[in-house]
Design a protein around this nucleic acid. Structure first.
Lengths: 197, 197
DNA sequence: GTCTATAAGAAGATAGAC
DNA sequence: GTCTATCTTCTTATAGAC
């Protein structure tokens, strides 16, 4: 798929990194505007290339979305792996998860949760992509489950689902009310719950 | 596109109730397909009228949405008023709220929460309608707050927000995983929390 | 690889006959 | 009130020159 190391022309010079730049821009726009509202024109404009060029790199919008899901999956995996290194203690892992919400306050208020909103949208519009979109949730879910197991909880599966559920609820309400205080309050409650385990 | 015969009269006869039928169909389609994915053609087809006729009753899509928001607001108000009558006890009121989720299991699994999904969608697409869409949340929020106050809780506001947050999280996760068991488990946890108050 | 030009279709919305 | 026909704009996607 990658076409690296091509010669550089005089005019219409190739930008070997354009594919990456497209993915970056689309990743951002699919989040901020939503998948269906972010058009090829928007993305091409953002990158500074023509729509035709965009279609050269990605035949269809679904192709582009799939490439972005791959990127997001990788990002989540990297984050979780890093947290595993930094926080050997199970409860610290759980707290770090909640801390993610707080550190994304500004984006949550303006655009909602990138996982939750994409899953809502794809569920209604692109049923065939639900599985891939849901896979990001699965990463968090199984990582949290491992942490609960490490903590010695029997019902680690239901606890991980519960934590994810509270986080999604908090993210959604934060977005609906565009209220960062709401986010802080809900995260405090989640952290208290973690402490009480 | 089909100009299906209504079989009742000969030609172009007035249907005084078409306006109501349009609202019903649009209300359903805005929920099941989403506001942006439900087109005028979809709605006209569902009602069995032409797009032109639809535009006679509602000049724009936003007009139609506003009419539907009025209907939904009324429905929520009616529900809350009825629950007030049926459940004088504060905790019973809170339980009834959770019961609503369980009784909407099939719809939540397939289409998500009508309030949550609409708010997510309008937030990204129609910022000018966020306030109206959010108003449905406000109805629940203040009703719950009253119940918590009746129960003697000082922090009734934060508790009502918290309950709404958990409900939204549960609805979203139920939808993403199309998992009715998840809904039952989360509702059980919420009910336990209510009991513990 | 990149561009311009254009197809092909769907969307919201309007005009005018009946 | 209802219809058909049409307009305009936006969308995804393709064709072909450079």
């Amino acid at each position: 798929m990658s076409t690296e190391g091509k010669g550089i022309n005089a005019m219409n010079e190739p930008r070997p990194d354009n594919r990456e730049r497209i993915i970056e821009a689309a990743n951002r726009l699919f989040y901020t505007k939503g998948y269906n509202q972010a058009s090829f024109a928007d993305i091409a404009d953002e990158v500074g290339i023509s729509k035709g060029n965009l279609h050269y790199h990605f035949r269809s919008k679904v192709d582009l979305l799939e490439a972005i899901l791959v990127v997001r999956m990788k990002e989540v995996k990297n984050n979780l792996a890093q947290w595993d290194e930094e926080y050997p203690e199970a409860k610290d892992k759980l707290r770090r998860f909640v801390q993610m919400l707080l550190s994304e306050e500004a984006e949550l208020v303006r655009y909602g949760c990138p996982l939750g909103s994409l899953n809502m949208e794809l569920g209604k519009y692109q049923p065939e992509l639900r599985d891939q979109s849901r896979a990001m949730f699965d990463l968090f879910r199984s990582w949290l489950e491992k942490a609960f197991k490490q903590l010695g909880c029997k019902d680690s599966q239901s606890l991980s689902t519960h934590l994810l559920t509270m986080a999604q609820g908090a993210a959604l309400m934060t977005y609906v009310y565009a209220d960062s205080q709401l986010l802080k309050d809900e995260c405090s409650k989640i952290l208290e719950w973690i402490d009480s385990l």
